[in-house]
Amino acid sequence: MQEQTTADDPQTKGVRDVGVVIQESENNRPVIEAIEADNPGCSVMHSPGLVRITAPGRIVITQETVEEKLGREWETHEFQMAIVSYFGNIQEWDDDEIVIAWDH
């Protein structure tokens, strides 16, 4: 029912995962691709309607990569349209990037 693909074997014992869950849709596909590109070592799990991306320690979503994949301007606020859930702490939500990581 659920498929999981791991881009890289992270070899990161002791680093806790953070994750973000995104609605799987045509609009969000480029956003998901951008996250995969910017976070080598992330794992992607598909379940009905949802994509769950996890990575050891930190996930970054950068405006530049999303705009490149999307082929149009994209402000980071727009990520609110895609995000369903996350775990970790949103450390940064700036004009140019969003960072999810644990604080301690």
């Binding site: 379940s47 009905p48 949802l50």
Partner: peptide, 24 residues
Amino acid sequence: MSGSSFNGDLPTMTFGFSAQSDES
């Protein structure tokens, strides 16, 4: 939401995503 998506309930799934984006 996953349950509604998997059982053909498009409105609830869409509502769920819409609400859940606030939820984050």
